[in-house]
């Protein structure tokens, strides 16, 4: 029971303090750009998580044979190949998701969370923990993305919707705020910055309170 609680608190502290988006401020560019709908958030989150786990595993595999001088090029080649594979698979099997994520899917290559974790964790740790670290980071990235896009979609369009990413068919849609009271501003870039700032401030406040 207490062990469970501890695990839970470790996960929560990871989610808040080591959260790549709100705690470390990594990978903000794509986060702000694509967080307009829950569909995008989950699609992007899953893609980033897959790339993160696989790149951490591979980087951890080659960590002993890679000399210090060329580790960045080696990691970049690994990450770029993984992202290209993921983007080709998404293009083939989830074309609607592919078109709504657009260039940001390919831009996962330069998402600093991935190179950051490869550098800071996977290059010094064995395969198992590296994979777990990738999964943790990927999940907290997805949760952050989901939080931003939930707020933006709700305030901006007044609806909560979910489309099947493989066929593009609408699965679920629910109007919560009447159309007259929505703020279309929230779906534009300004809304992304406002939402991000508020959430980042809230996370920082929780972290400060805990530290005291």
């Amino acid at each position: 029971m207490s062990e469970n609680k501890e695990k839970k608190s470790v996960f929560m502290s990871k989610l808040l303090k080591e959260n790549p988006v709100f705690g470390l401020y990594l990978g903000i560019c794509s986060t702000l750009a694509i967080s307009t709908s829950i569909n995008n958030a989950i699609g992007m989150g899953v893609c980033v998580t897959i790339v993160l786990v696989l790149s951490n595993i591979l980087v951890s595999c080659v960590r002993n044979i890679t000399p210090e001088d060329i580790h960045i090029p080696v990691y970049i080649v690994i990450i770029a190949s993984l992202v290209t594979v993921v983007s080709m698979v998404v293009h083939a099997f989830a074309p609607t998701l592919f078109s709504s994520l657009g260039a940001f899917l390919d831009l996962i290559v330069v998402n600093c969370i991935i190179l950051g974790r490869a550098e800071a964790f996977a290059s010094m740790n064995p395969i198992g923990p590296s994979a777990k670290d990738g999964l943790n980071m990927g999940l907290s990235y997805t949760v952050s993305l989901l939080a931003i896009s939930l707020i933006r979609q709700l305030l901006g369009t007044g609806m909560i919707t979910w489309d099947n990413p493989f066929t593009g068919a609408n699965v679920f849609s629910l109007r919560i705020i009447p159309e007259t009271f929505t703020l279309p501003l929230m779906t534009s870039q300004v809304g992304a910055f406002l939402t991000f700032a508020c959430l980042a401030a809230a996370v920082a406040a929780i972290n400060n309170k805990e530290a005291k």
């Binding site: 080649v77 690994i78 190949s81 080709m88």
Partner: peptide
């Protein structure tokens, strides 16, 4: 050689997936 091998492996994987 290491970088070359890395790129070759990645290229191979990419062409298979493609």
């Amino acid at each position: 050689v290491l970088l070359g091998i890395m790129c070759a492996i990645c290229g191979l994987v990419l062409s298979v997936v493609n």
